[in-house]
Design a protein around this nucleic acid. Structure first.
Length: 504
RNA sequence: GGAGCGUUGGUCAAGGGGUUAAGACACCUCCCUUUCACGGAGGAAUCACGGGUUCGAUUCCCGUACGCUCUACCA
């Protein structure tokens, strides 16, 4: 009888959520939904010195933007509340004490200075089976010494005590069987001097309390896994332990190593899902959202960074991902992040999108740039006309803005060199022609234009680019006559007149 | 230093004892387009190295090298 699938994402609220974090959420979410399970978000705020104001709210905003709604969390509630470890502080101590009572953990009174000194004295110092006998702890102190320290309220921590030369192994859902020799594992601190648990104690206690069935986390946790396995074995039984899956890391695009916020700054791409301003340093980091990414594209791109369906399909909606995702197809090795490919995903999703998907986002964007959408049906037409040219949502400002606003920045240098009286007289005649009879339809406008160029004896080809620059301000955009047709007679003539004046 | 994990084109990757070793991004060339895109056609890999096993290894085994992660009273 297998238990209900319950997974958790357990971030610590120390800053913006970056690519690796969101991908971990995604994989958790996909796995839970695929198996009709629950997706829990638990806040691991056991380190009070690293707590950052606003970080937790930011995490939930990010999840909402991505469409990855938790079933249980401090925000959404649930049967295992509270979901913040700081609020569960009382629940951890007894397990640490239980281990001490069983001789599997001990009190240690060494100060930070003591430890620093040791580390300086002994190269590669580890608090473990070979060194703990020379430290200040309940293993080495006499009963009365110990009692005196406790009575004097001396700060202490509780550390696990692992016997050397034991094998600890477990089956990782991605990597298969992984082995460790306890001789190499140090006596990790379980309970800190302030009474808070460390991550190592808190994960197992909470995963047990919340009946987590599968635990996904970054590969950086693999080396401490034996401690967690040990704790599970002694505290709750291996049969109750969640199945582990250690996810590959997301690496820097250049060189090697884990992707960091610094790389984004350096290489000019976002690393966080959304804008994040660190309240302590006032440092600002831009996010994928603000950079113009669609959440569908963002999650699609992230899913493919470490997983592949085995088919040639690359574009997946969240629903398709839920259906197709499988841990067996998650890679073991890390992947370098490629912003160009990320943009490609976004471009594809914009091409797939309809006006209804993105209208409000683009409206807001336009508002920031003082672009006023006067006509809804015109906006729809424009959207269909230019969306193939937009890689990021923000590109709509340039690609669609001139339909609603007379361009102020005319790239005059693009036509100046070849501008002459012949062209000037053509456009003057064109103004007259269109003033009298402006055929509203694009192909008819083109016919009028070409007919005029023939009577004026100028090649139409030499006039297309000037017209384009006059209407849109630069060398881009869809067909010129489409544009003229949409912006209409008055505006078309006005823009031609304006530019002629500028060229005079 | 130690432990753990990893290694298929520049990047993401499929594949898996016998194949012309998929596909995508990027890049280059060409076509389409009197703009920019879209779209279409083409171009690149002795599968890290060395030993085995085998009729045959990119694929299995063992080493080596390289890379990454961890080695905190941080997660």
């Amino acid at each position: 009888m297998s238990k209900k699938v319950r997974v958790r994402f357990a971030p610590s609220p120390t800053g913006g959520l970056h690519l690796g974090g969101v991908r971990t959420v995604l994989y958790n979410y996909l796995f839970a939904k695929q198996n009709g399970g629950d997706f829990i978000v638990r806040i691991e705020d056991t380190d009070q010195t690293r707590f950052v104001e606003g970080a937790e709210e930011y995490i939930f905003n990010t999840l909402e933007w991505c469409g990855l709604t938790p079933d249980e969390s401090p925000k959404h509630g649930g049967p295992h509340a509270p979901y913040r470890q700081s609020e569960r502080k009382e629940s951890y101590r007894k397990y640490a004490e239980e281990l001490v009572a069983k001789g599997l953990a001990y009190y240690a009174f060494d100060t930070a200075e003591d430890l620093d000194a040791k580390r300086k004295e002994i190269a590669n110092f580890q608090y473990g089976h070979s060194t703990r006998i020379s430290m200040k702890n309940s293993l080495t102190l006499s009963d009365t010494e110990f009692k005196n320290l406790i009575d004097a309220n001396t700060p202490y921590v509780i550390r696990v005590k692992l016997e050397p030369h034991q094998e600890i192994k477990f089956t990782d859902l991605i990597r298969g069987e992984v082995h460790f020799d306890t001789t190499q594992v140090d006596d990790k601190v379980l309970l800190k001097a302030d009474g808070m648990p460390t991550y190592h104690l808190a994960v197992v206690v909470d995963d047990y309390a919340m009946q987590i069935s599968h635990a996904f986390r970054g590969e950086e946790w693999l080396p401490s896994a034996p401690v967690h396995i040990f704790l599970w074995d002694k505290l709750f039984g291996l049969e109750n332990m969640p199945q582990w899956a250690h996810l590959p890391l997301i690496l820097k695009p250049d060189g090697n190593g884990k992707l960091s916020k610094r790389d984004g700054d350096r290489l000019g791409f976002p690393v966080f899902a959304m804008d994040w301003k660190d309240p302590r340093t006032n440092e600002q980091a831009t996010g994928f959202k603000e950079r113009g990414f669609l959440p569908e594209a963002f999650t699609n791109m992230l899913a493919m960074l470490g997983w592949n369906s085995g088919s040639e399909q690359e574009l997946f909606s969240l629903e398709e991902l839920i259906e197709k995702f499988s841990l067996e197809r998650v890679h073991k090795g890390g992947a370098k992040f490629d912003f160009e490919k990320a943009k490609w995903f976004n471009h594809e999703w914009i091409k797939k999108s309809t006006i209804y998907d993105v209208r409000s986002t683009i409206y807001n964007l336009f508002k920031e740039h003082n672009i006023l959408v006067d006509d809804e049906s015109k906006f729809e037409k424009v959207f269909e006309l230019v969306k193939d040219r937009c890689v990021l949502l923000n590109d709509f400002v340039q690609q669609a803005g001139y339909f609603f606003q007379t361009p102020t920045n005319i790239d005059i240098t693009a036509l100046q060199p070849k501008w002459d009286d012949k062209k000037k007289s053509f456009f003057t005649a064109l103004i007259q022609q269109w003033n009298n009879d402006f055929a509203g339809d694009a192909t008819q406008l083109e016919q009028q234009f070409k007919a005029l160029s023939e009577t004026q004896q100028i090649k139409a080809g030499e006039l297309m680019l000037p017209l384009r620059v006059m209407l849109v301000g630069g060398k881009f955009g869809p067909g010129v006559f489409e544009i003229a047709s949409i912006i209409g007679k008055e505006e078309t003539i006005k823009r031609i007149e304006n530019t002629i004046a500028m060229l005079a």
